[in-house]
Amino acid sequence: MTTIGTRALMDDIERDVRNRLRRHILKRGGAAEYEDEALFERVRAVLGRAVDERNADALLLPELLDSDVEWELQTHLRLTTHRPVLGRVILLVKRRLLLPMTRWLFEYSQENFRRQQRINAVLFACIEDLAIENARLRRESKR
């Protein structure tokens, strides 16, 4: 008996899902360019590569933005003080009293910040993939 290949089955299923997605987007008034099935597939492949294959921790754009990471979402709460004596008491109150009381709000915000950070990373990855595609096409057009 011949083997049924997982990849072959998945190729059929993925093609079917892509076609349904394309028709769904067109039906809802999406880009008319997607009437062209091959063009839609090319766009989907570029964006899909950015989402699935790029390592969000190793992107070029965040490295170029700024080295002091002021643009980056700060999900970590770091309690510090500049007061040498009173500072310890203030920190103790913040850590032992205020932080436990407001922890629910901090965690709620933190979860949403994490989601935003994930979206940012995906968008950075998409831009990077488009830039790579652009650079490659420019190089090929010059040959």
Binding site: I4, T6, L9, I13, V17
Partner: peptide, 30 residues
Amino acid sequence: ADGGLYFRNVAEFEAALDYLLDHDDTRRRL
């Protein structure tokens, strides 16, 4: 193993599950 299917997103999850539940013979062979 050629022992099943996979999904990347909700649409593929539903389509792959549909496929496995609708094709008894293929499901058993996988």
